[in-house]
Every structure is written in structure tokens, then in C-alpha cells.
Amino acid sequence: MSRMLSFTLRRLLITIPVMLAMSVLVFMIIRLVPGDPVRTMLGFRATDANVAELRDQLGLDRSLLSQYLSWLGNLLQGDLGTDIISKAPLTELLAQRLPVTLELTGLSMLTAIAIGVPLGVWSATGGPLVRRLTEGFVILGISIPDFWLGIMLVLLFSGIFLLLPPSGWVPFAEDPVENLRRMILPVLTLAVGEAAYFLRTTRSAVGTVLEQPFVTFLRAKGVSPRRIVYGHALRNAGPSIVTVIGIQVGVLLGGAIIIETLFALPGVGRLVVTGITQRNYPVVQAGVLTIATIFIVVSLLMDLLIGWLDPRVSDAGTS
């Protein structure tokens, strides 16, 4: 346990500078806008008084460092700022939006793993026909643009077969069944491409493990082929698969930005896109910060999971 504890602490320590770098990047968004960001935000009709007020509110007339520090201070107290259009506090807005994005990406990730990993094992242990079929799935899954796949799924399931609603969202608390029904198409859209990556990774990782000498010893012990594949090969392939899952979390969060817009899901990604279109920079900052934080936290969790799966990783550096 102390092994995992020290590994966790070391990994947490690395996360601090990453979070700081990310916060600087997000902080700079509004400051890097060419010209006068306040005038850009408010548009041509803004009076000089409006501009001065917003400039003061955003603290843009102070030094960069003092701006950053007070912004970071607010952030650490859970204050993400104010929406310049609706004047609503952004922390509340994000709190409403975050569950949608988490549900979409979480379900997509689980679906992709549930499709990709077993198919990968099948591909690694199956014959040439299985290999060809799964390879075809990989090439298609990687090549189909996800949002176009989403459009085609809508055409199929709500245009032709009238089985599922084409878009829209219902809160889970209000109607769980309807919520999940409306999540099917967006989740499937995001999951197919990801599943292709998991298939490819699982296939090569499991294939490599099955060539290891310890598999011969397992056979000599009379262990069943099923157990060799699922108990040993998959377990050994675990770190490689989890590494790719960690990388794909970023891809999935990026994909969610488009898919939320496509299916009219009120998530953080759609908020950012609307924010950009309306030049509502505080909203963009809060949204980017939220998605980036999910990304960093999930990457951290994946690394800890790898350390737990592969004792050699978490041992490195302690002894």
C-alpha cells in the first residue's frame, strides 16, 4: 500500500505544474485577442462607459501578473467569473453543463471499451478471416469523421426507422429512460471511432503477450486457454490499453465538442462553441478550463491505474 501511496504522491506532484501551465494558457486567452478584447466582445454599439465598466470588471487595466493572481485566487475559491451577456455566475452555469459532458464522454468511453477490447482479443486469437474483418473495422472506424457518422446514424435511426429522436436532451433526474434513449446516438457516434483504437491496441498488446515464454509455462501447468487469454494476456496488456485510453480521453473530449453541437446537448463543449461565436470570452475561458481539468484529472487517474496494474511502473523510482 505504501508503494501505491508514494507513487500517487509523486504523480500528484507532477500534476501541479501541468495545472498551472494550463491555467496560464486559459488566462491568456482574453489577453491575446488582437486589438481591444473589450470592444470586440461588446461590438460596435457599445458606449465608452460600457467598455470602461467591463474593462474594470475583468480587471484588464491592471498589470498582467496581478490580474493572473487575482483570477487564480478566485478560481481556487470556486469562482469562474461572470457571463458578460446573461450576467449569470459561470460557476453555476458550468455546474449545470458539466454533468451532460461527463455523461456523454463517460458512456462513450465505456461503450468504446466494451466494443474495442473484446474485438481486439478476438482479433489476436482468431484466424485470418477474423483478422481481416477486424482490420476492416479499424480502418473504417478511424477514417469516418465522427460527426458525419452521427449524421448518418440520425438519418438511419430517426429518419428512416423512426426509432430514436434526432437530437435534444432530457435531464437524467427528470426522466432517466428518456435521458438514456437520447444519449444512444451521440454515444454510439463517439464510441465507434474510439473502439477502433482500442481494438488495434488490444490486438497488438495481447498478441505480444501471447508470444511470451510464461504463456508456455501456463500451458504446462494445465491452465485453460480462456484463462490464459483473459486472466494473463489481458492483464499484462492492461497498461498498454489503459495508456491508450488515457490518450483517447483527450480525443473524446474534443469529439464531444462537435457531437454536443450536432445533437443539441447542453454540455460544456457546446457552451464553448457558442461562447466563441458570441465573443463571450469569460464563458470560453470557463469552458476550456473545465474540459482541460477533466482531461488532466482523468490522465492522472489513468496513470495511477497503470501503476496499480503494473507493479514495475509504480516501483520505479522508489527503490
Partner: peptide
């Protein structure tokens, strides 16, 4: 044969490090 391996007959190999699953 599998039923007999590890029960009636057993085998060990040259490289013990490579014979064991590193994650178990």
C-alpha cells in the same frame, strides 16, 4: 492433454524469470 499437464506431468524451463507472469 491439458487435463494431464500440471497434474500428472509438469515441466519447468530454463529461464524462471520468463516463466512467471510479471503482473501476478
Amino acid at each position: 492433454l491439458r487435463v494431464r499437464r500440471g497434474d500428472e506431468m509438469a515441466m519447468i524451463f530454463q529461464d524462471a524469470s520468463a516463466s512467471l507472469d510479471p503482473t501476478w
